[in-house]
């Protein structure tokens, strides 16, 4: 029987004892018991698991995420990637011991903080105008090859304009959020009408301030739809490769 690792938490012994005694009512995937393996003040929360292949379906992934979610309400934690399996408690202990400093540094970085997702969409694809390009309009008499290039050039200019708009928006949002002492990681936009896609790490008690800030930005941009999600476990702010 392998061990599936959900998260590594930083906690005092008593609170983890409560976890192990099921006082907090959390179970692992497939209703399995949770247990904890510790080294100093860090604990890996684990449950038994059969093998990788049989526990890699979408339902398991959702259950796995729900466990991490519950734990994140109680502890500062580093979420583990779904499917992180080790052979035994002894092996987990070795990993904790070997990576203690890196794990502690990451835990300190995210202590008391949560992750939030901010995505921004255009209301419609033509809301950000592409400059009129008289010189690239198709003209009668052009060859099919020239018209092909002109069409491609129009698409290219549209992409460039959108990129420019996204960059400006990135700067504007960063300025608005700067007062919240947040760490912002901008990701690639997901295509379609998405013009901004970022994750933020900030103090849990700043949730309302962040929401108000986003509402403020939205009120300046009727052409956009903003979506703020969270709080999440700090999935995108853990910088560690376990040895």
């Amino acid at each position: 029987m392998h061990k599936l690792i959900y998260a590594i938490i930083h906690a005092k012994k008593e609170s983890v004892c409560r976890l192990m005694n099921f006082d907090i009512g959390i179970q692992g995937i497939k209703g399995r018991e949770l247990s904890a393996v510790s080294f100093n003040d860090i604990w890996a929360v684990v449950s038994d698991a059969e093998n990788k292949d049989s526990e890699m379906n979408n339902d398991d992934a959702l259950e796995f995420a729900a466990v991490t979610e519950e734990l994140s309400h109680m502890f500062t934690l580093l979420p583990m990637r779904f499917g992180s399996l080790l052979k035994s408690d002894a092996e987990i202990l070795k990993v904790l011991e070997k990576n203690y400093d890196a794990i502690r540094n990451n835990l300190i970085k995210v202590e008391g903080k949560s992750e939030y997702g901010l995505k921004v969409f255009r209301n419609s694809s033509d809301i950000i105008p592409v400059p009129e390009l008289a010189e690239v309009k198709q003209a009668e008499g052009n060859s099919v090859y020239k018209n092909y290039i002109l069409n491609k050039f129009n698409e290219y200019r549209a992409d460039e304009t959108l990129l420019e708009y996204s960059e400006k928006l990135k700067t504007e949002i960063a300025e608005h959020i700067s007062g919240l002492n947040a760490v912002i990681k901008c990701n690639k936009v997901t295509g379609g009408n998405n013009v901004y896609n970022a994750v933020l790490l900030l103090e849990k008690e700043m949730t309302d301030n962040l929401t108000q800030t986003v509402i403020g930005i939205q009120s300046c941009h009727k052409e956009l739809n903003m979506m703020l999600t969270g709080p999440w476990a700090p999935y995108n702010f853990v910088d560690i490769t376990l040895k």
Partner: peptide, 23 residues
């Protein structure tokens, strides 16, 4: 997830659906 994770956003389901498509 047991709780609603959308702190603020459009209720336009098309946007959410598009995101699911991306996933």
């Amino acid at each position: 997830m047991k709780e609603n994770k959308i702190l603020y956003g459009t209720e336009d389901m098309e946007v959410l659906t598009a995101q699911l498509d991306t996933l």
